[in-house]
Simulated assay, not measured.
Amino acid sequence: MTSSVWLNADFSLRVVINSETKPWVPSPQPGVERRMLDRIGDEKARATSIVRYAPAASFPAHEHPGGEEILVLSGTFAEGSTLHSAGTYLRNPPGSAHQPGSPAGCIIFVKLWQMNPADRATVCVNTRDATRWHHLIDRAVCPLYEGFGERVQVLRLQPGALLLPEGNDAGAELLVLQGSLLEAGHTLPQGAWLRLPPGDGLGVEAGPEGAELYLKAGHLRELIDLPPAR
């Protein structure tokens, strides 16, 4: 990977971004724009982004040496002739290839080059499928992936429910999909993206309307000890 872009690249630091207030930045491919959240590298980067496809926009077929993780936020995302509706979670392992696009337009949450090189799991989960959910006292959980010390899930929190009731020993990352979170009187609205180092975020709770969010933990464990990017 090249290293021409460094954005929120010190993993020991908390980052809170309202992604919906960030400008859309054109990608090299016509009709595809992105909101960058963190990034190390140029076009072949370790990156976290919100990506928007205009109708009929697509990328040529290509490989992902470091793997790719996708959550379809709205519209319909395509991999070749396979269509994925809003709420679909995809995990394409290191060395996989696809031809992404969208027939009618879509917005997706994307994480690139953030998987263990030995990970070979291909995952496709429809989070709108009620049978995928486990219901607890103050939340419902849709498991998406667990392996190599990493756990990914979508949560639906009841109003006032703590985000991390069991603590945060290895760092966590989340994207608010619906509703809001509250912390020390501050509101984290739909579209807020948080990257929390170990021990952080323990006071975050769901807002008065509850919250639905993507939550990923464990993947920062090795990165937190890296020196800050220069």
Rank of each mutant, 00 (worst) to 15 (best):
residue 68 E to G: 01
residue 33 E to S: 14
residue 19 S to L: 08
residue 224 I to A: 05
residue 193 W to I: 03
residue 58 S to E: 07
residue 178 Q to P: 14
residue 188 L to C: 00
residue 36 M to S: 13
residue 135 H to D: 04
residue 76 T to Y: 00
residue 130 A to C: 10
residue 107 I to L: 03
residue 193 W to S: 04
residue 221 R to V: 09
residue 189 P to D: 00
residue 229 A to R: 12
residue 32 V to D: 02
residue 139 R to N: 10
residue 29 Q to L: 10
residue 28 P to L: 15
residue 79 E to L: 15
residue 92 N to D: 09
residue 101 G to S: 06
residue 6 W to P: 01
residue 11 F to Y: 11
residue 72 V to C: 01
residue 193 W to P: 00
residue 165 P to Q: 07
residue 136 L to Q: 07
residue 31 G to D: 09
residue 199 G to A: 05
residue 40 I to R: 09
residue 119 D to F: 04
residue 72 V to Q: 01
residue 165 P to Y: 13
residue 128 R to W: 09
residue 114 Q to N: 14
residue 201 G to F: 12
residue 88 T to S: 06
residue 185 G to R: 14
residue 7 L to I: 12
residue 22 K to M: 15
residue 228 P to Q: 08
residue 221 R to W: 02
residue 38 D to F: 12
residue 16 V to I: 13
residue 191 G to F: 05
residue 54 A to W: 02
residue 133 W to P: 15
residue 213 L to Y: 05
residue 160 G to P: 03
residue 63 E to F: 06
residue 107 I to D: 01
residue 104 A to S: 12
residue 15 V to F: 00
residue 139 R to D: 02
residue 94 P to T: 11
residue 122 T to L: 02
residue 5 V to Y: 06
residue 131 T to C: 10
residue 216 K to T: 07
residue 204 V to H: 03
residue 224 I to G: 04
residue 194 L to S: 04
residue 35 R to Q: 14
residue 226 L to A: 14
residue 147 G to T: 11
residue 79 E to W: 06
residue 212 E to K: 01
residue 174 L to T: 13
residue 192 A to W: 04
residue 205 E to D: 03
residue 45 A to E: 04
residue 109 F to V: 01
residue 226 L to V: 08
residue 41 G to P: 08
residue 164 L to F: 03
residue 166 E to I: 03
residue 115 M to A: 13
residue 223 L to C: 01
residue 31 G to C: 07
residue 223 L to K: 06
residue 162 L to Q: 04
residue 6 W to F: 07
residue 87 G to M: 15
residue 215 L to H: 13
residue 29 Q to R: 13
residue 8 N to S: 15
residue 61 A to F: 06
residue 92 N to R: 08
residue 166 E to M: 12
residue 222 E to T: 13
residue 224 I to H: 01
residue 28 P to M: 04
residue 87 G to C: 14
residue 151 R to A: 08
